[in-house]
Design a binder for these strands. Structure first.
Lengths: 239, 239
DNA sequence: CCGGCGGGTTGCGCCAGCGCAAATTCAGGC
DNA sequence: GCCTGAATTTGCGCTGGCGCAACCCGCCGG
């Protein structure tokens, strides 16, 4: 099994407050696994055999409704923990995790979790913070879906992606993994048609540039203003 | 300070796996507080001074958008933990908690959390499960808002309320605390008008009976079928 | 170099549900 | 018993965004 250098992961939130020795002990139980682009790490409904840390690449967590429609729960960025189903009391994964780029994950058997937590309680505390942060994000999403129009929701989603996984390029900031209109639709609760129209309009205004599975935000600040602006703001008066 | 009998709370998920002695030690740090109907337990943005367990009554957790609109995050039922902001790494409460009925809460100072967790690691593990469960619920809500029409969302919300806080009455199951059309609208991302129309229609079909701040579900099963039914189901073919 | 296919774009018509407004009802307080 | 205000109901018109359908484009494999 490939050894993992503890210095690579020492700064991850999951391992906050642990000594190097502790970290080595924990890492000794992990395997490092390569996941090819578009391959699943695990699938919704499957026995939650492992939990993971993403070392390299990008992973999409998606959830299928009983009726068969899909939504995207989140994109996992490098260094984040995912698949912690057992830790939150689930026997099966509640979502599917798919690599959207060639990726590398660290995997621990779920069975190791209770033992690790007992020996290193900081793991539970750290995971609690992570899960708490996700809960906040999910609530934010519910708020946006309840109160904002589609264009703003898309703007917010894009800004979040840029913040989380933006890569500086020539003319702006590019989202650092392949993402389709359909994906954005599934993140914002709309259709790929509407996303396409919206991006086209923004492209016309010079806010973004996009092509297949690729989006570059040219004017993050203008996009931000669009996302935040008050729809009332004195736009309605007749000359 | 009023003493709390440990037998009253021994079965709560938060205290799973703790001995009676441990429980007494933990309870000795709590105060019991009465909160009058329509009074806040804490408010969004306020310093997270305490965390709570609801002993009696019902509490609504709501969140205001930057633009000033409100959504309802959830209703807290008896025995549930809430206000655990500090435990998930927040300095301030992310939402407002309001008693919707005369209620009684147990309150611990947030400062006690790290010490309690150190001494009783089960607290962290139990809270992790609770927060994880809420994350699942929130994801379910996102899925519903993304893929379901308003009527089904309202049906699902009602069924959840009935399950969580239903009280058997003469003709059906009543939601055991005052809840307005507006409240349901804020839970499902719609308007009070649409909720009103929907409930009126259901009342016409004998599924529910409702009046001011009161809803009785007469036919839970029919409501469930309505919530789950496939809109496609062979209704559209041309001869 | 070619063909096919997975994305992406765009025009068109429609409708669920919203916004507005007015009327009605009910629960308390006085 | 009356008054007030909050909660609810309901009609009406409008529109954001969806569904459909046709079409385009660029990448990849052969």
């Amino acid at each position: 099994m490939a050894k993992v250098d503890s210095s690579l992961v020492a700064d991850l939130p999951l391992f906050a407050g642990l000594s190097t020795a502790d970290l080595d002990a924990i890492l000794s139980e992990a395997r490092s696994v390569r996941v090819a682009k578009n391959s699943p790490v695990f699938e919704q409904g499957e026995e939650a055999h492992s939990f993971f840390v993403l070392l390299h690449g990008h992973v999409r967590a998606s959830k299928a409704t009983p009726a068969g429609e899909q939504i995207i729960v989140r994109y996992v960025a490098t260094g984040e923990t995912f698949g912690v189903a057992k830790a939150i009391g689930l026997q099966r994964y509640p979502a599917t995790a798919t690599a959207v780029d060639d990726s590398v994950v660290l995997a621990w058997p779920s069975g190791a979790w209770p033992r690790l937590v007992e020996k290193f309680p900081a793991l539970a505390a750290n995971t609690l913070q992570t899960v708490g942060a996700r809960l906040q994000e999910s609530h934010t999403r519910v708020m946006e879906m309840s109160t904002e129009q589609v264009e703003k929701r898309i703007a917010h989603a894009l800004l979040r992606l840029v913040k989380q996984s933006g890569r500086k390029v020539e003319h702006g900031i590019e989202i650092d993994f392949p993402i389709s209109r359909q994906d954005i639709a599934q993140m914002t609760g709309t259709t790929l048609h509407t996303v396409s129209r919206t991006l086209s309009a923004w492209e016309g205004k010079g806010l973004v540039e996009s092509s297949r599975q690729k989006i570059v935000v040219i004017e993050p600040h203008k996009l931000f203003m669009l996302a935040e602006e008050n729809p009332e703001a004195g736009s309605s008066f007749k000359p």
